[in-house]
Amino acid sequence: MNINICLIGKGIVGTSLIQLLYQKKKFFEQKFNLNFIVNSIFEIDGALINEKGINLKEVLDVGGDFRNLPYWRKDAKAIDLISKLDISICIEATPTNPKSGEPGLSHIIEALNNGIDVISSNKGPFYLEYNRIKNLAKQNNCYVKFEATVASCVPSLGIKEELSGNEIIGIKAILNGTSNFILSRMTAEGVDFPLALKEAQELGYAESDPTLDIDGYDAAGKLVILANELLGWLKTIADVKVEGISKVTPHAIELAKLDGYVIKHLAIAENGELLVEPRLIDKHSPLNISGTLNIVELETKYAGPIILMGRGAGGFEAASAIINDLISISIKRGYTA
């Protein structure tokens, strides 16, 4: 079955998604009877639009020169065209504005208002306006999926369906690879925070402005989404008590070691409270992961803790989560029949 999709945002995630959609075309057809037709790819200054379907190989081949393709329409805006194009699923992959959630929030709302299912890798709209988006999706009989927003490819949201016979009652997680890398280096090498941060920046694990990562705001946003989705809460990022890691010292780490602890930047949802803060955890705890990995420990009512771990960032990691959402919606919609 042919499924028309639009992609908003052609950054690292968007480009990785185009690559996966192209590479896995036969797989989708053979295994699921699905033919995803990308009829629009929006960027900040225009869009590639071909109602019959964009040649993805051509887009990949030209790389950064995609604006020279004949079907590039300068100044075309997603917000104006979502309702006009024939789209079944809209994929939102623009960068997050942490304060407003824009432009992603408006794209999502516009798509849902037009009865279009939504997949997002953009977390801002969900930690700011989760309830509004979910209600709008319900009112318009739409699916909205956002697996890539938390821990990227790690199925931390999708697991809810797999645990429908159980009950998730608490969450402890490490949701930011940058802060975990920095604390891991401080623990392993005894270096101070500024040096570990510099190293993270040199290795490309931290942005030139790493504030959102090291101050805990990024992890807080992901925690809100996890808590709302898995615990049924209705929180926003304003409800999270956030403490960053910049005040953690090598001496504090040494003192922690004396009692068999390590310091980790934990995101915690328990007893109705959301916290992101440095915590002492037993060095033998499964949460003691190193480097840029993410980990989510779900406390379940009937089976104790269940742990998911993996790479929490990266283009293909996020794109693979989007693909999972695409297939999931397609199955629910009966497109695979």
Partner: peptide
């Protein structure tokens, strides 16, 4: 237990504390 660098600098102090049974962690 404490660790210092210099007197003017911040210190790091590890405390082992005991709290009442009827007090929760929060």
């Amino acid at each position: 237990q404490a660790k210092f660098t210099e007197l003017e600098e911040v210190s790091n102090v590890k405390l082992k504390i005991e709290f009442p049974e009827d007090m929760n962690k929060k």
